[in-house]
Design a protein around this nucleic acid. Structure first.
Length: 166
DNA sequence: TCTTTGATTGTTAGT
DNA sequence: ACTAACAATCAAAGA
């Protein structure tokens, strides 16, 4: 619970890394574009980069996805995103490293994919600078497609971090 | 009608 | 190194 002990030691540096008390960011740019049928008359300068990968969900978000399902399953009446977020956050802190491990594992995988995507995106940006996406540009983007060894390893459990155990 | 907000934590990229 | 913003969600309320 609120007892910060073991973790604090390892994350001692992190302790000092908390200058902002207001984590009330809540400042999100307009990404919601439900208006697929019609956009505001004024065309925003929003560059739509379909190739630009979104940031990978952190372990917390991965856990949240499942948590939301469960939470809503038991609380179908609750329709406030904030409630699920709060409950999720509380539960998340209640989980131990071992329990978070599987979520982190998945998050790590997402990150790996993100890196790959961002890399391709980055490259595309460079190439697009000269020549936007064109049929010929495919040769540039296509540097290593099948060449990249596809090593699927889902069985990567080398997390022996079970120190936290109330 | 359409856009924004709300709340969580973690991660990413920029300065 | 540190800060700021953003990742999903989804309904309600404001402009």
């Amino acid at each position: 619970m609120k007892n910060a002990k073991g973790k604090g030691a390892a994350r001692a540096s992190k302790e000092s890394l908390k200058p902002v008390d207001d984590r009330k960011v809540g400042k999100r740019k307009a990404s919601g574009k439900p208006g697929r049928s019609s956009a505001p008359k004024k065309e925003k300068k929003a560059k739509k980069d379909p190739n630009k990968p979104k940031r990978p969900p952190s372990a917390f978000f991965v856990f949240l996805e499942e948590f939301r399902k469960t939470f809503k399953a038991e609380n179908p009446n609750v329709k406030a995103v904030s409630v699920v977020g709060k409950a999720g956050g509380e539960k998340w802190k209640s989980l131990s490293s071992a329990e978070k491990a599987p979520y982190e594992s998945k998050a790590a995988k997402r990150k790996a994919e993100y890196e790959k995507l961002i890399k391709a995106y980055d490259k595309k940006q460079a190439s697009s600078a000269d020549d936007e996406e064109s049929d010929k540009s495919k040769s540039e983007v296509n540097d290593e497609d099948d060449a990249s060894g596809e090593e699927e390893e889902e069985d990567d459990e080398e997390e022996e971090d079970d120190e936290d155990d109330d």
